[in-house]
């Protein structure tokens, strides 16, 4: 069975590496994808008729925006699964994907503002519904991350966080529509994907970029989940077990431990 093989390799190396073949392949695909997207975005595609070269920002702006929403939605789905099955892993998936969603949301705002300065003559435009609602949503999810950061009993924290993640996902359409009605006008490019104004290669580059960023989201979430899982296990094992574990490792340098038995736990404490 694969699990046995996995265990065997892990104990053989003593220290499980941060990667396995599946995620490694995904990672390499992402890297290649980014190179192709960058090459297309900077060398192959033509400047836009209206926006000129600034259209090249779109190749990262639109994908990170989509990535952010995907992160929020995946987080809500994982949270719903957590509340049904109470599986700690689902809670950690929610944490990983929302954290990445927030990061992507911040990048959406930054790239949007950087695009807005030369285009509108100002970094921020309150009339732009998508940017304003993204800002509100990012703040909403920053609250989620803050809630996760307080510590305390892990089960009750997972439960609270799951409820917040689900509520926040329901806020997405409410926030977007209320901001839309608030201004009732948008200076944003009406969805460039669907209005058929883009040239073929531009459209292809954009779609490819969205695909690569989504793959990257999967890969990054996996990495982040793996970290969250290790930290969860570490906390589950408790400090005592962790120290025992480290002691067993330290037995390779036996003489040092025998010479000064107090030094060992003390150094552990400062690292924890």
């Amino acid at each position: 069975m694969t699990s046995t093989v996995q265990d065997a390799t892990n104990s053989a190396t003593g220290n499980p590496g941060p990667s396995d073949s599946g995620t490694r392949t995904t990672g390499i695909l992402c890297l290649l994808g980014f190179i192709v997207v960058a090459a297309l975005a900077f060398f192959a595609t033509e400047p836009d008729d209206v926006q000129g070269d600034l259209v090249r920002i779109m190749y990262v702006h639109v994908p990170v925006a989509i990535m952010s929403y995907v992160g929020f939605v995946v987080g809500a789905i994982a949270s719903g699964y957590y509340l049904r099955k109470r599986s700690p892993a689902a809670d950690l998936v929610a944490q990983a994907s929302i954290e990445i969603g927030v990061l992507a949301g911040v990048l959406t705002i930054v790239t949007g503002a950087v695009w807005g300065q030369p285009t509108w003559g100002t970094y921020w435009n309150w009339g732009d519904v998508r940017l304003v609602s993204m800002l509100v949503l990012v703040l909403l999810y920053v609250g989620y991350l803050a809630l996760r950061g307080v510590g305390g009993d892990p089960t009750s924290q997972a439960r609270r966080s799951a409820v917040v993640a689900i509520l926040s996902a329901f806020m997405i359409p409410i926030v977007r529509n209320s901001v839309d009605w608030w201004k009732n006008r948008t200076l944003h490019q009406t969805s460039s994907l669907t209005d058929g104004q883009l040239e073929d290669l531009t459209l292809f580059t954009l779609v490819l970029s969205i695909g690569v960023f989504l793959l990257f989201f999967v890969w990054l979430t996996t990495k982040r989940f793996r970290l969250a899982w290790l930290e969860y296990q570490r906390d589950e094992l408790g400090l005592g077990d962790a120290i025992a574990q480290r002691r067993a490792e330290a037995e390779r340098g036996v003489e040092a431990a025998i010479a000064n038995p107090l030094r060992d736990p003390a150094s552990k404490g400062s690292e924890a």
Partner: peptide
Amino acid sequence: LTAGIRGRETLLPILLLPVLAP
């Protein structure tokens, strides 16, 4: 949601105010 946890005085506003934006 924030009851009984550390730092709830600061956590409640940051969670609730974006929700109340609409």
